[in-house]
């Protein structure tokens, strides 16, 4: 396959940046999108041009590092996949492909296609954990009976890999699907009950401080989420927040 790429190039955080056009040739339709970018970078290096910086790590759809807004969609045109799982057969030979970084005030571009998603880390630090005594007397997890439907729901929420596609896709740059998934995964389990109210209040507060927008229930996040996290969790977070706001001792 031969493609024309329009890639966002930006030297650093302060640089204005812009789209630069590169042709790539000889791409296998079985290659992943990131492998195609590897080929582009090899071509650029041989031409003496600085390679395009982009995030990646596991390349098997579980780490949440790869991002990219490809042809107007987070993680590209395929559904329930990350960019590393996106195959070139989703594109046509001769096609022009736009590649941009995830756009949000809370995800500043560091270089080219690399964005700083530290805001997600800070939201997690605000409440996305349980406090457990690990000094040798930790209770066996199996000693706590958990109904299967609750465990399934918690696991559905926990599949969020924190890639930020929800933010990138949302017209309001809202992080509510991410925060809702993290709040919900603990709210279903007995281990998460002690900090339940504090957790939702603190995580939503941190989310607002980071500059994300508000959810307007367009549902775009659910469609573009590589893990298929449901909007149901946002409603659950809203309910959790309402409950915590009216009954928290804090």
């Amino acid at each position: 396959m031969n493609l024309t790429l329009k890639v966002w190039r930006q030297k650093n955080k302060e640089d204005k940046g812009g789209l630069v056009t590169y042709p790539v040739t000889g791409i296998s339709e079985h290659a992943s999108f990131l492998e195609m970018l590897d080929v582009l970078n090899e071509q650029l290096i041989t031409q003496g041009i600085e390679p395009v910086a982009f995030d990646h790590d596991c390349r098997e759809g579980i780490c949440g590092m790869c991002s990219l807004y490809i042809n107007g969609e987070a993680h590209g045109p395929d559904r329930k996949v990350t960019t590393c799982q996106l195959h070139m057969r989703m594109f046509k030979d001769g096609e022009t492909v736009h590649i941009e970084p995830f756009r949000s005030k809370a995800f500043p571009v560091l270089k080219d296609l690399v964005v700083d998603r530290g805001s997600f880390d800070r939201i997690q630090q605000a409440g996305g954990f349980i406090s457990v005594n690990t000094s040798g007397n930790t209770q066996d997890a199996n000693a706590l009976p958990i109904p299967k439907p609750m465990a399934d729901k918690a696991m559905d929420a926990a599949t969020c890999i924190g890639c930020g596609a929800c933010v990138a896709t949302c017209k309001n740059s809202s992080a509510m699907l991410f925060v809702a998934a993290k709040v919900s995964q603990y709210s279903y389990l007995p281990q998460g009950q002690v900090e339940r109210k504090e957790r939702v209040l603190n995580m939503v507060d941190q989310m607002d401080q980071e500059g994300f927008g508000n959810c307007t229930n367009t549902g775009a996040c659910e469609v573009e989420c590589p893990k298929g996290i449901s909007l149901e969790f946002i409603a659950r977070m809203n309910k959790e927040y309402l409950n915590a706001s009216t009954s928290s001792e804090k």
Binding site: E73, R103, K105, K171, S174, G213, A220
Partner: peptide, 20 residues
């Protein structure tokens, strides 16, 4: 507030693919 949350817009955005 929502407009301010994305100061730089996408050059290409296919919003119709995922929302009404």
């Amino acid at each position: 507030k929502n407009k301010a949350a994305r100061p730089i817009k996408y050059a290409m955005n296919k919003a119709n693919e995922n929302s009404s």
